[in-house]
Design a binder for these strands. Structure first.
Lengths: 228, 228
DNA sequence: AGACTGCTTATTGTCGACAATCTTCGATGG
DNA sequence: CCATCGAAGATTGTCGACAATAAGCAGTCT
């Protein structure tokens, strides 16, 4: 326990400057401050963080490896954007991983973890009630983050988060939400029920199914947006 | 097709110096020239490749992101070594991905691809006959590489290769092979049969099963080696 | 003899500078 | 008016140098 404090202190001590810069730039991208497809200026970031370009370049190399940016020779790095096709590829993998996650969580979830999952689902219900799409998406990320965390496989957590981040680079995200983020949360609650029942097979199947539906909602949203 | 030529030329043109250095260092690690756990000297690599330390550091950052090296502040980077526990985590994921791979390949394999798979399996049979363990492992890597390639999901290929590379950092690899790399190839041929029959479910199940058995062989080898 | 302390050496972390390349903008000619 | 060419500006790629930190070693004290 006691995992609340060591955030800043430990990071500054263990992670070096490029590591810090990396997470900072990542936040910039994920928060949309660096727009999708946009060119990333090294000098600008350097002066912004008060360092030279060296650490910035190292951080960008790491981000390139995790596919958050792409790099063109002598032109610099750009915030990566993914097509529907690539989003589909990611969803293929995500479905497989979600099935695994559902199984593992159902096997080893604690009572306390179960309560936290239910709490987040309740919060999401509230955002649905007031039509807070932005808040819903934030909680949705948190929910799936908790799930993969509870699966107890750190490498799986890593891979899953990487995939999820990639999905956030989808151009049309957030637009014209396919109509059903209410139904999305009912799926969440079904998953929780299967987990509470300690039914790995069912939990895996439902979570996989949830990913399938999520992908379908993405397609619906993409079609609706591109048709305008 | 025609994916044979653009290896070197395209890499030198598109990928920058750090990119080249990255794959070079990766080869050094994977070929064991840089031993597992060993400290990596930046200046030494720099003079070896005839560059300054800048590009080396960028390459090492990328390799750290793909978990082939770990980095300690003010101490430098070390070739990563993974424990049995972490290898287990990777196998968990690999099983899930192999199931997906089997399904996809069975759905979309071409006749020509099928022939290539069978050819590699035959080659492996030959290495088994002459007890060429090293040759078998090389072909085994190639076989699974081909499979994930034939699945037709580039992102899946990326993720799978990353995981596979991680497995190569296992300390006890190659030692005391659990006794059955012959049986391993019979599993390969069963997978091929299911693929040839265009049976996605069966191919997925068998390839997943193969990963399970492979993990068991790793455990057996680890136990045998550590017991000495 | 063993442990501690201080110095020397090697290595990393960071920076500023220069060359190479690309982009932009204006001028010139059709 | 539009296209093409050329120069100025901006940005990236790479390098060598310096400061900060850790590792190795000798000498000394108990």
């Amino acid at each position: 326990m006691a995992q609340a404090a060591p955030t800043v202190l430990q990071l500054v001590q263990s992670n070096s400057l490029p590591g810090l810069v990396q997470v900072e730039i990542e936040q910039l991208i994920l928060r949309g401050e660096l727009a999708i497809g946009q060119h990333v200026n090294e000098s600008e970031l350097a002066s912004r963080f008060g360092t030279s370009r060296g650490p910035i370049r190292e951080a960008l190399r790491a981000l390139e490896e995790s596919r958050l940016v792409r790099s063109e020779k002598n032109r610099g790095v750009f915030v990566r954007e993914i097509s529907v096709a690539e989003a589909d590829e990611i969803y293929d993998i995500r479905e497989a991983l979600d099935q695994l996650i559902g199984q593992r969580v159902a096997e080893r979830v604690t009572k306390e973890q179960l309560l936290r999952l239910k709490a987040v689902a309740a919060e999401m219900d509230e955002t649905v009630r007031v039509q807070d799409v932005k808040g819903y998406h934030a909680l949705n990320l948190k929910f799936h983050d908790m799930l993969v965390d509870f699966a107890g496989n750190s490498r799986l957590t890593e891979s899953y988060r990487l995939l999820t981040k990639g999905l956030l680079l989808f151009r049309l995200r957030g637009l014209k939400d396919g109509g059903g983020f209410a139904v999305s949360n009912t799926e969440h609650k079904a998953v929780i029920a299967a987990i509470a029942a300690r039914d790995p097979t069912m939990a895996g199947r439902l979570l996989c199914r949830h990913a399938v539906e999520s992908r379908a909602r993405m397609h619906k949203a993409a079609a609706a947006t591109s048709a305008e």
